[in-house]
C-alpha cells in the first residue's frame, strides 16, 4: 500500500470521526443530510459484501467494518437519538434517493466487469459513491449555514477522493496489471463534484472566515 492510499483512507476515516464528533458533542445533526448518510450506508453494504467471501488483509477487513459500523451509527443518531433527531433539517433535506439509486443501478447492470450479482452490486456501489454527496451539497446550498465541522467533513471527504486519484496514478505506473477504468471514471466524477465546494471552502479559509456559500 502506498502513502497516497493510506492518506486517502485516513482522510475518509477522519471525515467520519468528525461527523460523529459533531453529533456527539453538540447533540445536533443540523446541516447534515440524512439522504447522503443513507446512500453512503448503501454504498458500504453493497461494496463490502465481499467480507463474506474474500480476504485481502487485516487492515482492509478492519476498515470495512469501521466504515459499516460508523455509517449505521450516524444513521442511528440521526433517526433515533432523542435530542439529535430533533435537529435534523427534514424540510430542507428533500433530495430523492431514487434519482441517484435507479440510474446507478441501471448503469451498473450495463457497464460492469462481469455480469454476476456480487460484481454488479460492487459496481453499483462505485457509481453510487460518486454521487452520494449530492444531497449533502444541495442541503448546504439551501441552508447556507455551514458550521465548521460540517465544512471540514465535506473537505476531508473530497480530500479522500483526490488522494485516491494520486494513488491510482501511482499504482498505474508501478503495477503493470493495474487498470480500472470504471473506478477511475467514477472517482473523477466524484472528485469533480467537490470542485465547487473546495473553491468556496478555500476562499473562506483564506479570508479567515466561516464557510459561506453564495
Amino acid at each position: 500500500m502506498n502513502l497516497f492510499r493510506l492518506a486517502g483512507d485516513m482522510s475518509h476515516l477522519f471525515s467520519i470521526v468528525l461527523i460523529l464528533l459533531k453529533i456527539y458533542t453538540s447533540k445536533s445533526c443540523a446541516g447534515l443530510s440524512m439522504k447522503t448518510q443513507e446512500l453512503y450506508t448503501l454504498v458500504f453494504v453493497t461494496r463490502y459484501l465481499d467480507l463474506f467471501y474474500s480476504y485481502v488483509s487485516l487492515y482492509n477487513t478492519v476498515m470495512k467494518l469501521i466504515f459499516l459500523a460508523s455509517s449505521f451509527g450516524i444513521l442511528w443518531y440521526m433517526r433515533y437519538h432523542k435530542q439529535v433527531k430533533q435537529t435534523y433539517d427534514r424540510e430542507q433535506d428533500t433530495f430523492r434517493h431514487y434519482i441517484l439509486v435507479v440510474p446507478c443501478a441501471v448503469l451498473a447492470l450495463i457497464v460492469n466487469n462481469e455480469l454476476s450479482v456480487t460484481e454488479v452490486l460492487w459496481t453499483f456501489s462505485i457509481y453510487l459513491e460518486a454521487v452520494a454527496i449530492l444531497p449533502q451539497l444541495v442541503l448546504l446550498q439551501r441552508t447556507k449555514n455551514v458550521d465548521n465541522l460540517t465544512g471540514q467533513y465535506i473537505f476531508f471527504l473530497g480530500a479522500y477522493r483526490a488522494l485516491y486519484i494520486l494513488n491510482w496514478i501511482y499504482r498505474y505506473w508501478t503495477e503493470p496489471k493495474y487498470r480500472q477504468y470504471l473506478v477511475w471514471a467514477a472517482g473523477l466524477v466524484q472528485t469533480g463534484l467537490y470542485a465547487d465546494f473546495f473553491y468556496y471552502y478555500l476562499k473562506s479559509w483564506q479570508a479567515g472566515e466561516k464557510l459561506r456559500l453564495p
Binding site: 492510499r5 474474500s54 485481502v56 476498515m63 466504515f67 460492487w122 494513488n167 493495474y178 487498470r179 480500472q180
Partner: peptide, 10 residues
C-alpha cells in the same frame, strides 16, 4: 481477468 485483485482498495 485482472480486475479481481483490484478489489484490494476500500
Amino acid at each position: 481477468e485482472d480486475f479481481i485483485d483490484l478489489k484490494d482498495e476500500l
